[in-house]
Design a protein around this nucleic acid. Structure first.
Ligand SMILES: [Zn+2]
Ligand SMILES: [Zn+2]
Ligand SMILES: [Zn+2]
Ligand SMILES: [Zn+2]
Lengths: 167, 167
DNA sequence: CATGTAATGATATAACGTAACATCTTAACA
DNA sequence: TGTTAAGATGTTACGTTATATCATTACATG
């Protein structure tokens, strides 16, 4: 199961990738994690995660509910929110606050404080590990505060969209 | 109008401050800015800003609407959202995404990418200038992206609340 | 069987936000 | 000064996002 890490040496966060491998790897990873932690990867939870990892972009709760409905599950709001909360607790899903939407984690192997880079034009979203973009939290202003969770979202325009805008 | 800057040498971001001076300074600042930019600081806009600066904490749009209603203004949703958008455009108000709430800027003199530090227990929120906490955005991952806006929110527990939790 | 616990289902409603259009005010200008 | 255009506010209606609450199912344990 040891695959080459995706985009390891790339400087382009919005590049494509081998999504088949990405999908398979992610499923394996969540299965293993759930077994190890003695959690139930129920059909509902699996389906929600699959919907997110398949689309590989942020989806609103009600979009997820639509998909769930089409797949034969209940599609009442609490269903989605409960499962999403659960998956978020365990680091397999993040919420993109600026879009009121949810996205499968691109790198659940790391315990991390992810940064999301969001193009306002093409609406692509990239998750960047905190190893790459790191807040300077050493300033004395923050020493009397214990950080439990971070929301870091960078909105702007990707080079592809910017080049398109110029002409 | 040259007052000593608030908390200049403090290491505690959740400390109190001279709110009378804070309020007065902020009003003066926004008045001057609006004159300089030939913008209308109308009664409605002034009132919304006063509500926020007075409370000095994040308020939901509907809380603001309540206050507006009590002050004799219309309290239909678009009123608040329009004025908030306007004040945000000019940097006098920020949205705290994690709370769906709005807060007066603590430091509108700077053009900045602010960081918000949010205690989940006492719900106090501090705005920290980007001069203090700065993202490392030099990583090649982000060089093909032009950042226009940042959302940086650190949620956790302040030392006061943590000490209270222990006993 | 009785009880407990985890997960899911279902209804209703709260909270947040916007589109569209009407009315009123201000600033600019002939 | 009256006309006009732009800016600001008001109003209705609606759309979207999220939660509270209670009911049901399934399965484990004593
Ligand atoms: Zn992640
Ligand atoms: Zn783009
Ligand atoms: Zn600010
Ligand atoms: Zn606190």
């Amino acid at each position: 199961m040891k695959k080459k890490k995706k985009n390891e040496n790339s400087s382009k966060i919005f590049e494509g990738h081998d999504h088949g491998a990405c999908f398979g790897d992610a499923i394996t990873l969540i299965e293993d994690y759930f077994i190890e932690k003695k959690l139930q990867l129920t059909p509902l939870r699996r389906k929600v995660f699959e919907i997110l990892i398949e689309d590989h972009k942020p989806l609103g709760a009600y979009e997820i509910l639509d998909s769930l409905g089409k797949a034969g599950f209940s599609s009442s709001p609490p269903i989605a929110y409960r499962v999403l909360d659960f998956l978020m607790e365990h680091g397999f899903v993040h919420k993109v606050q600026g879009l009121n939407a949810f996205i499968a984690c691109s790198n659940p192997e790391h315990s991390h404080f992810p940064t999301f880079v969001i193009c306002r034009k093409c609406e692509k979203v990239a998750e960047v590990s905190d190893e790459k973009t790191r807040l300077n939290l050493s300033s004395p202003e923050i020493t009397d505060f214990k950080i439990e969770k971070t929301t870091i979202e960078l909105t702007g325009i990707c080079s592809t969209c910017e080049n398109a805008e110029i002409r």
